[in-house]
Design a protein around this nucleic acid. Sequence first.
DNA 1: GCACTTTATGTTTTT
DNA 2: CATAAAGTGC
Length: 662
Amino acid sequence: MAAALNPPQRAAIRYLDGPLLVLAGAGSGKTRVITEKIAYLIDCCALDPCHIAAITFTNKAAREMQERVGKLLAGKRLNGLTISTFHALGARILREEATALGYKPSFSILDASDCFAIVAELTGSTDKGAIRRCQSQISNWKNALISPDQARQQAQTDGDLLAANAYASYAATLRAYQAVDFDDLIVLPVTLFDQQPARREKWQNRLRYLLIDEYQDTNTCQYALLQGLAGPRAAFTAVGDDDQAIYGWRGADIDNLRRLPDDYPQLKVITLEQNYRSTGRILQVANALIANNEKLFEKQLWSALGHGEPITVTASKTSELEAAAVVMKLQAHRFEHRGEFRDYAILYRGNFQARPFEQALRDQRIPYLLSGGQSFFDKAEIKDLLAYLRLLANPDDDPAYLRAISTPKRGVGASSLQILGAYAGRRHCSLFAAASEQGFASQLPPRLLEAIEKFSGLVRRLQASAARQPASAVLTELLAAIDYEDWLHQREERRAAQAKWANLQDFCAWLGKKGDDEGKSLLELTQGIALSSTLDKNEADIDAVRLSTLHAAKGLEFKHVFLVGLEEGILPHRESQADGRLEEERRLMYVGITRAQRSLHLSYAERRQQGREWLPCQPSRFIAELGSENLRFSGGKQAAVPDKASASQRLAMLKAMLAEKR
DNA sequence: GCACTTTATGTTTTT
DNA sequence: CATAAAGTGC
């Protein structure tokens, strides 16, 4: 761990004369450069930690970096050091500068499904695909810093104009709700910095040195935020790898990497090419694969770790058999190498591919951790509770109001809410505000009105209690007040109800702990949750096989990696055959390969169930691109009968299993 | 008008 | 399999 730094690494850490771009190949120690540079700034340059900001793309990466810096500077005070995602930093700026932008600091952060519902409502469309396209169009406009007016002017077709109009009313709706979406967390600070130089300078003075991880994944708007924060001093280190750009679909623009030398002529570029992670074979196939892409910056990764095991390619008849084969092979490999489960990762393109692997692992009683997939905070029971919390913080949050008032059911149904909504629309106020107005009382029969007023009373009571009590007490009171546990048991099977209740307890415990430990208010906690997808608890110590999407695996490394579902239509994905996107799929495969330290196993199925139909699959073109000299094939038609190697593997596994059961 | 039950339906990747 | 729309009792 404490290996000496190589010369380019050391240069990257010590270089402080201006903007710096570190082109860091996979496994070349880029996280180490960032963490050691933070330590260097604090230790050797006596920079106060509160003036340093390291920006990552995922919460996981931020947490890991925090941990590593903590270890590196054990005992030192790190108060005020910022290590967060772009979005979390944006939220922090926004919270502090809300009033300057016409927002309350208690703004709500809408999740993707809230936004989907709003777009659906505004366009009056029932076509899910069309709504999603419109939603992503709006997101693209925002990320490119194009205003609704500009979008309208640029509209070419009627469809464009329709979407641009939807964009305008979408923006107005969010403002009325005192709510922002994920994109706004970056866009609004950028707008603010653009319009009010004094605010920009305040933040430039606060965050004096910036370190940006995964720079290749920034979009236009994130780059603008970066430029705003860096200012003319341009004291920053951007670390990135054009071969690992895999977020183009989210608006990330590799052009930001190309533009950096133009925008900052004094930019220093340092390339890290020595890989400390993988064996020679793994790097050879990775290099062979990525050579098929148009290169932005030339680099050739090399490793001093020796040649390593051959890379295996396994064909299976179906996706279920693939899962069984991979799990069996994993088990055999683990026994042979006396490894631990945590050394193994199974990586795939889409979350839906996890299912058969989960099943196979459960069958074999192998512990596993599933990362990605349905986010913890996307579970219905958590979102129910969160709706109440959002509403307490921000009564204008109509999506939260709608969810809270109908969970649990309290005699207020769709038609009452429609009347309330219409009234609120006429009065230009939120649902919550409308419900207490005199004018509204005459619109409904007394029975229904009473139910609504009872709800308003509940919200006010909880608001009062949130003002003077810690988060955990408010949660307890809230759950008791709405009888959530009883309601769960009424409408769900016992097991399901218990599982959901347990989730809620976990959630409350986590919230309470975070509130106490970090002294965060209910408001900050609620806003923070919108930006995270998992309860970030310590998973590092759990000995379990990791299951992850390729996207979620970026930045991680594993001794042994199984890359599964390598079929045309899956990787590369069916809808991404256009050339720009095919290269991104190739980079995704590249990211998967370069996660592996010691061994790499590829696999694909010959048939896969899609919906109700079985469709034949072709092996991914990317397998052929790896070259055959480092691959060893098994399975498929030519190897229907187990060969000696796999027979002896099975025997070894059986023996080991018997030994383990004593 | 409201709430609960049945039935169709569908999957890229994340903050 | 889990969610979301349509249908049925109260």
